[in-house]
Design a protein around this nucleic acid. Sequence first.
DNA 1: GAAGCACCTGTAATTTCCTACAATATTCAA
DNA 2: TTGAATATTGTAGGAAATTACAGGTGCTTC
Lengths: 243, 243
Amino acid sequence: MSGRSLDHTVQAFEFIEELDRLASPQAIIDAMGRSFAQFGFENFIMTGLPHPEQQIESLVLLKKWPLGWYERYTRNSYDRHDPVIHLCRRTVQPFEWSEARFDPETNPRGKEIMQGAADFGMRQGYCLPIHGLNGFEACLSMSGPDLDLTPQAKPAIHLMTMYAFERARLVLAPSPRPNPLTTREREALRWAALGKSAADTGEILGVTERTITAHIGSACTKLSAANKTHAVARALQHRLIEI
Amino acid sequence: MSGRSLDHTVQAFEFIEELDRLASPQAIIDAMGRSFAQFGFENFIMTGLPHPEQQIESLVLLKKWPLGWYERYTRNSYDRHDPVIHLCRRTVQPFEWSEARFDPETNPRGKEIMQGAADFGMRQGYCLPIHGLNGFEACLSMSGPDLDLTPQAKPAIHLMTMYAFERARLVLAPSPRPNPLTTREREALRWAALGKSAADTGEILGVTERTITAHIGSACTKLSAANKTHAVARALQHRLIEI
DNA sequence: GAAGCACCTGTAATTTCCTACAATATTCAA
DNA sequence: TTGAATATTGTAGGAAATTACAGGTGCTTC
């Protein structure tokens, strides 16, 4: 193992130890800025990936990112067409931005987005997908003019990212929003997801079909769903039920 | 940083470099056995976590595990009640087996399982959840009589596990089964998951309501689903559609 | 050329879902 | 104690889904 990669390794583990002492988002950003700089990264953003009805701004955990580009990105909802985001949803392995291929036919905005980033000095970058519970998706995307992405560096970056993400989540979201559904609503949706009709579920739970219909209707209201199928999909998407 | 943890770190990165050269499951098992031994682990099993209709045996990737315990475990479907498995589905952070609490009231078999493992010499262990694409869940569970689980060791184990898992998946499953649904079936299910009726979807796709009904029915047959809601749930679960 | 598959469409009967209008009982917090 | 939330059930009508029977086009593969 070379001296340089050993340096990386040591700093990666020191970074992980340091994380536990960081209590504010800014402290994490500063520490990440210092530690990722050794790999050539100048900018980074840590964010959840939005569902269709969400805005990416509400999911950004930490960022050290060109402000002009961020504003243009969010204003145009570039996350819907960003090739890096698309690949991030399809793989668990870290990848370089250049590996995020796109078809100009089906995604004409892909080129516009990659070119826009380059215009802000971000020609090359590295993206680390984070797949969590219930399909929760996030990533840390990083950029810099001269990156160290040797085979020795990548695992160190990967490890640092995983722990930084967990720390950021802990610091920023100490209390996840409670499940908005009642016990009965969850049960009714769960059996619906398993293919049961309202009458079936009523028999299973020992209540009438009408009661199950009421629970499903209530769940639809809470989830802003148009019907039972929609409600089940949203409940699965937001990990409100398990099947 | 202590000398011992630096040793761990170096060996962790050497293990990761070595992985790329391992082409057979047994080679990975041997390498893991050697590298994890430095942390005190004698046994390990790497497996996917089954859906309700699956058997865990079909998801085991690699194992160096007491045979008698494995047979008893699978014969009794212990994975349905194993506290370690349950916690594994609910967290992304590695944890020690002793942290996997269970309520003897609702899960009376929990104690039986933990005691059974202890009877086979596995009193303490460490479990690393792996959450992948589309809610895919897996874990590496490890055990040994005298574990090194210091704060310095855990990140090294974590990193080694992640790369070992990806390597095992690559070696064992080079060709994922193709999506059994046709393009139109996926589109119909996707719009259904977004709350659209067959008539709505027909209008969106420029075909008749009857056609959408046919696609949904075909998808139900392929997915062994009882109805549209069931089909959407299964398609989401198996990542056949994205919403 | 035949066979298979994807894709498209129709009618009709039956089942299931969705919603509007009501109502009662229990629990829990202000 | 007094609402608010939860859980339960009823009627009834219209909307949507499911299924059975039937048939057509276009493309690819053997």
